[in-house]
Design a protein around this nucleic acid. Structure first.
Length: 247
RNA sequence: AGAAGAUU
């Protein structure tokens, strides 16, 4: 079953959904070898492709057949539902998961924070972060990134900055990475605070974060828009260097 | 030994 899970996972990643499904059904029916991980792999494949009703069908099926979903299964499906814009179903599933005695972990919370943020419910995302901390599950870089990005996109720039500043000073500051920096840079730029963004860009290295392609794209577009063309050019050069160092 | 989450 290990091998089949890997295969189903790979087919899913390659967007070969019908092949993944065919293999899954074969494993399930002919060999009776479908387990929680196999089910989770097929649910993930359909979830990521946005086919949530198929994912939910497999989810119901696994339960009906006595395979208890675990935290990975729930997280994958919550992510899929939220990605399809069905945050409420995601929240419902989150409650169901708790009712089933399955403890959420940082990835489950982060998926929900991301979903709430994307749905413009950043206040709820913020509350969820507080809740997870209160329950002894520390937010990680993914959680902070989703939260900051969501607050920024809801126009709550100040709150986003507060979260970032608080993280910078907290014992968890090692969580600061380039993607978290990019999320606050994007937030500042969106709020028209290009100079604040540029200052932050210039001090990122003090936090052990080094600009990546995403950083340069954000800053280049921002500086070009405000007519700071020389600085934009410098960043464009850096962007080219980063891209060419990829291969 | 296999499965889940972030910025542009």
């Amino acid at each position: 079953a290990y091998t089949f899970s890997i295969l189903i996972h790979s087919l899913g990643r390659a967007r070969k959904l019908s092949a993944a499904k065919a293999l899954f059904e074969k494993v399930r029916d002919k060999r009776g070898m479908a387990d929680v991980v196999t089910y989770t792999a097929i649910i993930t494949a359909f979830s990521k492709a946005g086919h949530t009703r198929a994912a939910v069908k497999f989810f119901k099926e696994m339960k009906a057949r006595g395979h208890l979903p675990n935290v990975v299964t729930y997280s994958a499906l919550i992510h899929g539902l939220s990605k399809a814009g069905n945050v409420n179903k995601g929240l419902e599933l989150f409650e169901q998961m708790e009712a089933d005695g399955c403890a959420p972990n940082v990835m489950t919370y982060s998926s929900l924070v991301h979903a709430l943020a994307k749905a413009g419910m950043s206040e709820d995302a913020f509350k969820l972060c507080e809740e997870m901390e209160a329950r002894g599950c520390l937010p990680d870089a993914f959680t902070y990134c989703s939260l900051i990005d969501g607050l920024g996109k809801s126009g709550l720039t100040e709150q986003a900055c507060e979260v970032f500043e608080k993280l910078k000073k907290s014992p968890e500051k090692h969580l600061l990475n380039v993607v978290v920096c990019n999320s606050i840079l994007g937030t500042l730029v969106k709020a028209g605070r290009v100079n604040d963004a540029y200052s932050l860009y210039n001090e990122m290295d003090q936090y052990g974060c080094y600009p990546d392609i995403g950083t340069c794209k954000i800053m280049h577009a921002a500086l070009r828009q405000t007519g700071q063309l020389e600085d934009a050019d410098k960043i464009f050069q850096k962007l080219q260097n980063l891209i060419s160092s990829l291969s």
